[in-house]
Design a binder for these strands. Sequence first.
DNA 1: TTGCCTTTGAAGGCA
DNA 2: TGCCTTCAAAGGCAA
Length: 612
Amino acid sequence: MPQLNGGGGDDLGANDELISFKDEGEQEEKISENSSAERDLADVKSSLVNESETNQNSSSDSEAERRPPPRSESFRDKSRESLEEAAKRQDGGLFKGPPYPGYPFIMIPDLTGPYLPNGSLSPTARTYLQMKWPLLDVQAGSLQSRQALKDARSPSPAHIVSNKVPVVQHPHHVHPLTPLITYSNEHFTPGNPPPHLPADVDPKTGIPRPPHPPDISPYYPLSPGTVGQIPHPLGWLVPQQGQPVYPITTGGFRHPYPTALTVNASMSSFLSSRFPPHMVPPHHSLHTTGIPHPAIVTPTVKQESSQNDVGSLHSSKHQDSKKEEEKKKPHIKKPLNAFMLYMKEMRAKVVAECTLKESAAINQILGRRWHALSREEQAKYYELARKERQLHMQLYPGWSARDNYVGGYGKKKKRKRDKQPGETNEHSECFLNPCLSLPPITDLSAPKKCRARFGLDQQNNWCGPCRRKKKCVRYIQGEGSCVSPPSSDGSLLDSPPSSPNMLASPTRDSKPQTEQTQPLSLTLKPDPLVHLSMMPPPSSSIVLTENSTSKSSGLPASNCQNGALDHQSATLQQSAPSSSLLAQPSTSSLHSHNSLAGTQPQPLSLVTKSLE
DNA sequence: TTGCCTTTGAAGGCA
DNA sequence: TGCCTTCAAAGGCAA
């Protein structure tokens, strides 16, 4: 645990920033303070909690079985515990190799390429896609994995139904980023109507759904020309006419919005003539094919419920008409953030690898994996998210996140997370549990706006909104690149939101950037941490301890892959999280593991296929 | 049928 | 200006 060296983490634990921005620039800042350990500290803290829990469990396993569950432990708690346990187990199994050492594909080669006026993908984009598809394709794995994929592919509307927004999003286009994002199981091939469209009909909904090509990964099936279904050209425009014509999985809708820029004037005028201005994105809501933006969904339950409730209380003609209008107003979803994009891409893998289906557990794994990602890898997703936001802004200039807030009478009842101060956070159990935790990550955060760009220690350089955790003005104005110089090598991103150098610093040998442009001082990070950050938990030290949230999960000890290590872990956890303690896993095992990283194959090299 | 769970990030709103 | 809340995806599960 070298990250605790230097006492950089004195106040880390209580730092709000730790929670709010643990993935952001503070990391750089922490690094610069030689405290790459903020997160680590949190992990340690949680580990300590975990330790206590573990000890408790280990000391009284039989008692635990006899005793009734804790008073506070509701059924849901149990369920949650089981989820977490499952996540731990699965996660532990996953980290046998380096955490996504890098995507073999080129990142965003040309954002503008696919946005050709004619709405077709540019050769560049096509090349890009063709390059990427195979990379994302799932290797033929075990039958189990296949089955998992088969289960997961389900392009059926069930997905839509399962989504809390039972609406249909329409893919309208294959975004150059789509392969990475794996938005859809069904992908639209411009100008190539799927002949199989009516072939498959969902038994529940009766809505036709496309059969999935058997040889195509349901999660990475974006190969142009292989697939898809063309949504109704103006599907979202005619929700009142009945069911959306073409069911598409939720994931399928989330294509980025490349075609936005391809909408021609006639379409815009058409939209303008038929819909209120707020419904007509200024000139680029639809693909040239008429396929709407994926972020647009037909009136949602949220809105409807809200409107219904409100309407019941305040019924007036005027309001009704307004509501009618609003009902027809498509629901424009928020653009996905980096983590969401990451989840969309990786969920399938996790599902395939772990045969997990519960999203809560999967998300836990993904959350840890996210932290395990190298900065460069995260940067890819931040960049994607940035482009999504940009595109979203372009598509829906007037849109605000507020639009999707369900307020007033129809306000959707949101869960209260009620995180108690003593409650362990998601990382709590993990630090010493390589299965879960990811190595103390100090290098995880991709650059994000001013915060990431300058770090916490240079807040004076932040724009005002950033200081208030608001929308970054510079970021918007510069579209991520105004402040930052263009990537010198272009190895990663052309216009990273933040210092491209940070993004384009695949190696930590990169020259330190100026503080202005390179707040994420990668070079300041101690090597051991670098290894940690890049390294999956050593399989030999996989420890599955009963974490705080799984007090009495009752999971059999057999789930622990290494009881001895578990004990060791417990022993370690009993000690105060000292640097020496933390350093233990980082030296031998980590380095050795790191060395293995280059040679050992990924458990599932879903995204590690070479470009060839 | 509906909401919760679970994750991170972005952004709006309020005090 | 800091903090809180909501939403975005996803699918199982509980009420």
